[in-house]
Each structure stands twice: as C-alpha cells, then as structure tokens.
Nucleic acid binder design. Structure first.
Lengths: 184, 184, 184, 184
DNA sequence: CATGAATGAGAATTCATTCAT
DNA sequence: TATGAATGAATTCTCATTCAT
C-alpha cells in the first residue's frame, strides 16, 4: 500500500523531528550539525530545508510539537475524586517523573539550549499552580495539615525535576512522606 | 614596579579565565568563539594558546579552578555549635543560594554544557552528604523529629538549586518551615 | 473550448519564457533561481524541465526567440522611398530607440549576462551595415554630403544604444542634426 | 628585505583585489566563487575574510579603489592651451579609449553587475560635462562651428565607450572628422 | 501534463588552531 | 610575551536537476 504524497511528507517530517530529537539530546543543539541531523534520518542535508526553514526552525518545531506541557496539564488536572491525598500526590509525582523520563531527550534539549530554558520555567510555574490548587483543596477539606501550599508544590516538583534532570532517581514515596508524614 | 614574569603570567591567566567566564555565560560555550574570548580579554586569539592548549582545555580549567565546591564544602562543614537547627539550616541554605547567585555565570556554563553536567551532580551529591550529616546529628540530639534525612537533604538543596538555575528566587525560611515546622 | 494538447504546450512554453524574461531582468540570470522562475509562472520547478533542458537552455531560448534582431532588420530594410534622408534617419533611430525601450527587459538580460554580450555586438554590426547602406545610397544620390558612412552609422546606433542601455533618454533629432546639419 | 607586517597586509590586500578583478572580469561577479577568487590569489578562501567582510564588500572595494574616474577627470580637465580643437579632441578620445582598454577588466565588471551600472552612468555624465565645456570654449573662440555641444560631447564619448565595451576598436580620427570635418 | 520529494554538488562564511615575526 | 596572517576543515544553506507518482 503505497503512501500518498501527503502521508509521505507528514511521515518524513515526523521522522526528521524524531531523528533531530535523538541527535540533539546526544550532542546538544549547537553540537549537532545539520549534516548529523540529516544522517540520523538517512537523508541529505538539503532535504531538511524542504521541511524546516532553518536549523533553528527545526529546534523550535521540536520544542513546540514535542513539548509535554499538554500531557502534564492533563495529568495534573485529572479528577482525583476522594482518594487519599498522599496516594494522589505519590501517583502524580510518579507520573511526572515518568513523563520526564520518557522525554529525557527533550528534557536534555531543554536544559542544553538557553533559548528554551524559559520553556522549562513556564512548565514549572504551571505545574506549581495546579499542584498548589490540589493541596489547597485538601487542606480545606481538613485532610492535610495547614501549610504553605505554594512552597510545598514548588518543592515537590523541583525535587523530581532536578533529579530527573541529572539522571538521579527519586523515591517519590519518601518525598511525599517527608512533607506529609503519615499520622499516627 | 614591574611585575615579575611569573606574576604577569599568572595575572594574564586569571584575566583570561575571567573573560572566558563572562563570555561563556553570555553566549554559551559553543556560541562563544575563540575570537570572542580573546576580544573580551583585549588580547589576540593566538595568545590564548600560550595559556591553554585548546578552547576545550580553557573550559576545563574554568570548571576546575573556578568551581565552588571548595567554598561549598567549607560552608557545610562549619561548626554550627549549639545554635538551633532551623536557624542553622536557614543560614546554610541562604549561603548556598548566595553562592549560586554569586557564581551565576558559572552555573550557566554548567547548565549549558553537556560535558559539565556531571560536575553539577557531583556537587549535589556531596552537598547532600554533608547536610544529611548535620540533620542526623540533630535528630540524634533530639532536636529534630526523626525523619528520612537523606531525602530531606536532597530536597532542601534541590529546591534551592533548581530555582536558582531558573532564576526564580526561593524563600528559604518558608522552605525550612515546610519541612521542619515550628513546634507548638 | 479546450485547447488542443499542442496549443496548450505552446502556450505554456510562451508563458514560461515571459515569466523568465521578467525575472531575469529583475534579478539577473545568475540571481534568478529555477524556483524563482517557476514561481513567477505559477508552476513547479519540475515542469520547467519538460519544456527546457536546463536553465541555460531557457536563457538561450529566450535570447533566440525573443531577440529583436528580426524586427530590427525589418525596420532598417524598409523601403524609404523618396522621403528626405534626415527625416528617414530620425524616424529610424526613434524606432530603434523604441525597440530597445520596449525590450528593456531583454536588453537588461543581454547586458547582464556575459555569454550574451556577443549577441549585442552582432546586433550592432548588422545594424551598422544596413544603416550604412542607406547612407551610401543617399550620398550617391547627392542628398547627403560625402562622409565616412561606416563611422556615421556606427555613431548613430551607438549613441542610441548606449544611452538606452543606461536608461538615459536620447534626443534623436538633435543627434541627426549634429551629424547632418540642415543646410542654409 | 623582509616585508613588515603592515606592508605584507597591504600587499596582500592589493593582491586579492588584483586577483578578484581578473576573475570577476572573466567569470562575472556572480559566476566567480569565493573559492575561485582565493585560488586566483593562491590563498585559502578563509583569508579573504580577514581582508574583506564579504564577497560583496570585496566587489565594492574593487569598484571604489580601482575606479578610473579620478584618472578620467584629470584627463579631461588638463589645460589644452592653444592647440587645435580637432587635435585636442582626438588625443582626448584616444586617451579615453586607452583608459577603458587599460581597465577592460573593470569595465567588464561594471557592465556585468547591475549594482555598478549606476557608476558607469555617472562616469558618462561627468565626462560629457567636461568635454562639453571644452567644446563650448572653442565654439566661443570661433574655432568650431556653432553646434549642440551637449549632444556632441555625449556622442563622442558614447561611441568610444560602447565600442570599447563590446571590444570593437574605434577609429577616433574618423569619429572627430565626422563631427567636425576639416574645412576646405 | 504536472507535481513536489529527494539528491548531490557547491555556495558563502566561520572557526579553532598554528606559526613566523 | 604577544601579535595577527594564514590555514583547512566544518558549517549552514541554496540550487539545478531528476524522477516516482
């Protein structure tokens, strides 16, 4: 079943993004040459320019289209019903950690490129807002002790993020336990 | 009073490192050309090679000689006497934060260069060990509640580090308060 | 009424030549890419190669088919009957000037491309021969004073050509007057 | 006698301009690659960029520094004393012709590059003014018949220029004779 | 007839590095 | 010690051209 022209183009574009992500993660954005990117996609450098106006445009497309902010948002805004806060937090941070792990390449690109660090900050900010909301609700419900929810949210996400960023595993259960010790 | 040869050489070397640090922080290691580095030191490119074997060697020298690990170590191993743990922790994290702020350029270089990220991890690991030791002592002394000191140490430093890394200010008092709430 | 295949092909070919002429005049032959040429004809680059073997072939076709040598020849060989030489010359040079003006794009291409300058020289040579013939006849008829007709012909055409080439207007009446002053 | 650094640099710059002039004349500005230019100077392409910011800058330097307008001006403004006008004109046009011949390469560059055609027009305009002045003086002195001096000046220079431009030799004596026939 | 994906060669330019002075 | 001319390799990007669809 031959691909149609349009399908082929779409597929090629994705393939180029995939290849670029891998190469960028490995060598850094500056360290990766267009030739490298093309080779990784088994393609001529020239072809890259049919799909992206420049190397920079390719980076931007990557950041825009492969960003995991949507997925993160989805994760954090899910309805947690009546499940215990500690359990929800644990699962949530684990999901966050997994999200970062699954997108390790992209995270590496984010860290390695100055122009994208802003993106990371934005990500953190939004995450803090959402987690903060959850904590506030549970404090109001009397389930969690009153505390500085903004700082708590920032703390939880920061620890996961920084450690993932350095490739160090985090024990999420211990982290939650530290901030919200089991009563009793 | 003319400088001796040796002094002059030493001075020039430092000057080159200073200039390089500034330029690297501004443009990134890859983004800065040897010409840029030389210009920033008001020197010709050729001279750089009398002091460093290559651009890469210059980066390494920077990382090695301008690293703040020694300063950090000093900070964390100071004798804290009998002062309250919460106060000690607050001052310690503030000093850590200030250390990062004062070395913002270097931190930027660390973040921006793949080859140096390992250095950051090492820094964190050592920091965690030292802070962990302090926490352990105070738990043993009955001043702090029993808790997962390793996770706590990692958490405290991570939050400060990640936020500094993104240029976001951290309220250290709140952070300490979150983990070790004032009794009563 | 659908065009026949042949008509359509012919039409497309002309359209491509038209577009090419415009683009070449604007950007120069080297400055115009095949993509530019195709875009100007609202067509894809590939199609160009169905009609012309190469960009170079397109240039040649343009020079050959859009050349105004035939028109010039026609102009100069017309029977001028018994009309006064000065009047004939004036009209003739004006027609020549107009011819160049109408084909400004083509002239621009001629001037801009080394390989075509020979074409211009040929044009001039033929023109000189024809005008020279006319002058000779009128000298023989006693209407014009005896003079160096070859030089005169060359002069008349050169002045018109060079000024048109630079976009400077020429007053043909004055030019004729200069060489063949009104008697009395 | 070793050249000083400064002399060497100056010499190299001239050499690069010389080489560029030759290559540009032969292949046209667009047709000549930086590699070609460097090769013609027996030098690496990179070196060109120590002396000129870009290929375009090199072209401009060539046009600016190798222009023959100064020489032309000198030629045309010389004091011609009491020598016969026809003789002065002949010598002057011959000198002009020789000037163009000597700078054939530069003329070729002028013709071949759109951005420099304006330069040619300027050259012609100034030339016409100066020659026109001479003619006016001699008409006033009663040496030459009254005539349209502006057109005459334009004509004389145009014929020389256009023919040189096409590589066709001009017989200057005949040209002067045509416009200012020997009396009696 | 017409498209547009793909290529390969080559363009201009930058850069780390060397070395004679 | 310090300079800066020179190199050669690499970089980003463009372009004429081909060809399967």
């Amino acid at each position: 079943m031959a691909r149609t022209r349009k399908e082929q183009a779409e597929w090629r574009r994705e393939q180029l993004l995939d290849a670029a992500l891998t190469v960028f993660a490995a060598k850094g954005v500056d360290g990766a040459s267009v030739k490298d990117l093309a080779a990784a996609a088994a393609v001529t450098p020239g072809l890259l320019y049919r799909y992206f106006d420049s190397k920079e445009a390719l980076v931007q497309a990557l950041l825009a289209e492969r960003g995991f902010l949507p997925r993160l948002r989805e994760l954090l805004t899910a309805d947690h019903g009546a499940r215990p806060a500690r359990q929800v937090l644990t699962e949530l941070l684990e999901a966050f950690d997994r999200l970062l792990a699954d997108n390790a390449d992209l995270v590496a690109v984010f860290f390695g490129t100055t122009r994208a660090r802003a993106g990371l900050a934005e990500l953190m900010a939004e995450g803090q807002g959402l987690v903060g909301g959850f904590l506030t609700a549970r404090v109001a419900a009397g389930e969690l002790r009153p505390h500085d929810v903004a700082t708590a949210a920032k703390t939880l996400l920061s620890v996961v993020a920084v450690n993932r960023g350095m490739g160090i595993p985090v024990d999420v259960v211990r982290l939650v336990d530290l901030l919200f010790p089991e009563e009793g």
